[in-house]
Amino acid sequence: MNLNDVSLFIRIVETGSFTSAAESLGIQKSTISRRIAQLEDDLGVRLLQRTTRKLKLTDDGEDLFARCHPLINELESAKDYLSATQDNPRGRLRITMPSELGVFMMNEVVGTFMRRYPQISLEVELSTRVIDLIEEGIDLAIRVGELADSSLIARRVATVSRGLYASPNYLQQHGTPTTPEDLSDHECYGILKSVEHWVFDGWGEAIPVKGQLKANSISFIREILLQDMGIARMPRVFCRNCVQRGELVELLPDYPSPPIEVNAIYPSRRHLNPKVRLFIDHMMEMIGDHPWVNEQLVTPIESLA
């Protein structure tokens, strides 16, 4: 049994298809098919049931995956550790992050990391879905907002200041709130997650809010605000130009919105992938000067050494 073929089998299961595995590894799909067929011949069992639309593990395939997945991870960790101790670390690093965080904040971090470590290949998935890092073989997730309880390790990267915004026309039509309590009478749009109560510094209790719209894109919500449709809580830097042009107004400056956290999440493995450490260290070098980050609120992650 060839361990390289076993590793390839694990990759197919992680990505969900021969095509995705081939694209992620940069090899031909026909090569993958041939090597899996050879692995099945070596073992004398069928591992995968393949159709034109679906890929399903057989019982033997599920057993091989369950037994070999942690072993392959350990081998990859050992290889990563040895690679990271060299002058030119190499290998693959898989990262997931929300789309707009990637496009507007993390793109420069990723670009400079690639120039700094040209032998490390990056796979970045931009998505708002909560990915099972261990199940899908993801090394690092960058997530925004409150974190659910889990066995994963979370390191706070930074905090981003937020404000409350609406268009002048909306305020002219519906009135301008002067206290958080007034928001109960307005259309309040949630971002990323369904939030039914907003908290404000200097105001004792959470305010119940309601609105016709919830979305997972701050760009989309901002466009809705520009159509005079309601009030939303947004990163300040994302609305700064609109405020300067008079298209949006920041509300309730005496009752600041709590900042939102940006966290780096990675699996709780016995040996941390050294490339994750390299990326986080590099990110912390870059992120403090980014306009999305409130410099007075930046909190460096703890040392991973």
Rank of each mutant, 00 (worst) to 15 (best):
E23P: 00
L213T: 12
S121V: 05
V160M: 12
A166Y: 03
I260W: 00
F238P: 01
M106Y: 06
P89M: 02
S121M: 10
T179I: 14
P256W: 07
V13D: 01
L64C: 10
V13F: 04
N273H: 11
Q172C: 03
A305K: 13
E285S: 11
S99Y: 05
C188H: 05
R270I: 14
H69K: 15
E23W: 07
R116Q: 07
L133I: 08
I218W: 09
L252D: 02
E14W: 01
D5K: 03
E302Y: 12
Q212T: 15
D201C: 05
Y165W: 11
G175I: 09
G111K: 04
I260H: 01
S77P: 04
D182K: 11
G102M: 05
R34Y: 09
N4R: 13
S217R: 12
L225M: 09
S150H: 07
S217W: 09
S17N: 03
P70S: 09
Y165T: 12
L147E: 04
L297S: 10
L8C: 07
M105Q: 08
Y189L: 14
H186P: 01
V195C: 06
E295T: 13
E196C: 07
L8G: 01
T85L: 07
R115Y: 08
I134F: 08
S219I: 15
V237Y: 09
E205L: 13
R53C: 07
R50G: 02
A84T: 06
V243I: 13
G111D: 04
R35S: 01
S151K: 12
E123I: 06
D289P: 02
A232Q: 02
A206R: 15
A21H: 00
S17Y: 05
R155F: 08
G102S: 09
V276N: 02
V298Y: 12
I36S: 04
R155Q: 11
I36D: 00
A206W: 05
A21N: 00
L297I: 10
S217P: 10
K210V: 09
L164V: 11
I260D: 05
P118E: 04
E247L: 14
F279C: 01
V160R: 03
I138S: 01
I36Y: 00
T52A: 13
E187R: 06
V109W: 01
L101F: 03
L152W: 12
S127L: 06
Y170E: 07
T176Q: 14
C242R: 03
E196P: 00
T299F: 09
F238E: 13
S151T: 15
G26P: 02
D149H: 12
P89K: 02
E247W: 04
K56N: 15
D60R: 09
H282I: 08
V293R: 00
S219V: 13
V276P: 03
L140D: 04
R236M: 08
S257R: 06
F18A: 00
E285G: 12
S219E: 15
V249R: 12
G230D: 06
A158G: 05
E181R: 10
D87M: 05
P253R: 06
E108S: 13
P180H: 06
